[in-house]
């Protein structure tokens, strides 16, 4: 049996598999023992109450889905009183995902949720559904740095910044988060997308646009994981389209220290425990003692035949 442990900043996880925010809730206790997971990550909450977006909130596209759930939230006091206690008896560290409209509000919120039982705060600065046309903080290095810096002075808990695939400045945003004091990065949230019914001409989501997730997203978020792991020294957590153990290995090899599973849990609710078991088997089969032995081992040596350069 290989050592599946991994460390994310100051936190040691017993394995690198955890749920992605918004695709996990306490209902999964009815499917398997949550304590087998490396960590537990809650749906993003906001301080105040929000009702979320109009329905239909989901639709499927080739091998993937779009969602425009928005962030329905019962508010922070409801969360602290009702949701938090549900996770008290689990060993797996609890990561809570939060969102806010301004850097100040993020900081105040971080302080409020820095309570016993919370192991880390995931900073959702990348939800494409909450602001106009996906103009999230994580689109720009300046706005990202601002949010993380304010939060850093408001809490001692580890801060995990969740990045967006919608920005053209992936590396700059990642570095801004690191510089401002983030303890880890998550690559990444969903990609802003759209679907139209060709027969009726109608947008297939009530909110018109939504976030793409599932296997179709993987090449993009895998690329971001690789870019970020090279550009920063804090741990990177891969997320996007993971459903098989090969997907997990690809992210680890690209440089991720852990991974999050989202949409795959909808297709098979026992995906995460299966991936933990299969990762263990693959490491054994390859004679590797630990997950660490895979992280960042991507082979980019140039063995390809060099193509002739066009001179004319």
């Amino acid at each position: 049996m290989a050592d599946l442990r991994t460390t994310i900043g100051g936190l040691t996880l017993k394995n690198p598999i955890m749920p992605a925010s918004g695709t996990f809730s306490e209902e999964l206790t009815e499917v398997f023992d949550l304590d087998c997971l490396g960590a537990l990550v809650t749906k993003t909450i906001t301080r105040g109450k929000r009702s979320g977006n109009p329905v239909p909130r989901v639709c499927e596209v080739n091998g993937a889905m779009l969602n425009s759930i928005g962030i329905p939230s019962k508010g922070v006091s409801w969360f602290l009183q009702n949701t938090l206690p549900l996770y008290r008896d689990y060993e797996a560290p609890l990561v809570i995902s939060i969102s806010a409209n301004t850097a100040d509000e993020f900081a105040r919120f971080a302080e409020e949720v820095s309570v016993p039982g919370v192991a880390a705060i995931e900073v959702n600065i990348s939800c494409p559904n909450i602001e106009d046309d996906g103009k999230a903080f994580a689109m720009r290095p300046g706005a990202t740095g601002d949010v993380i810096r304010r939060m850093r002075s408001a809490t001692h808990l580890p801060l995990w910044a969740k990045l967006s695939p919608n920005t053209g400045e992936v590396v700059e945003v990642a570095q801004a988060a690191e510089e401002a004091g983030a303890d880890a990065l998550i690559t990444a949230n969903t990609m802003l997308a759209m679907a139209i019914d060709s027969r009726t001409g109608r947008a297939r989501l009530g909110n018109i646009m939504g976030g793409l997730s599932g296997p179709a997203l993987k090449p993009i978020t895998l690329r971001m994981t690789y870019q970020c792991a090279r550009a920063v020294s804090i741990p990177v957590i891969g997320c996007g389209g993971i459903s098989t153990v090969d997907d997990v290995i690809e992210y680890l090899v690209a440089g991720a220290r852990a991974i999050q599973v989202g949409t795959a849990t909808f297709i098979s609710p026992s995906t995460m425990p299966r991936l933990i078991r299969e990762l263990d088997e693959v490491l054994d089969a390859r004679g590797l003692r630990s997950v660490d032995a895979l992280i960042g081992t991507v082979d980019v040596t140039d063995e390809a035949v060099v193509v002739a350069e066009c001179v004319r």
Binding site: T23, E27, V58
Partner: peptide, 16 residues
Amino acid sequence: EQHMACGIGMCQACVR
């Protein structure tokens, strides 16, 4: 009925 994704209560897709 409502459009669903997870079917077990995690995603909030199916609200009315």
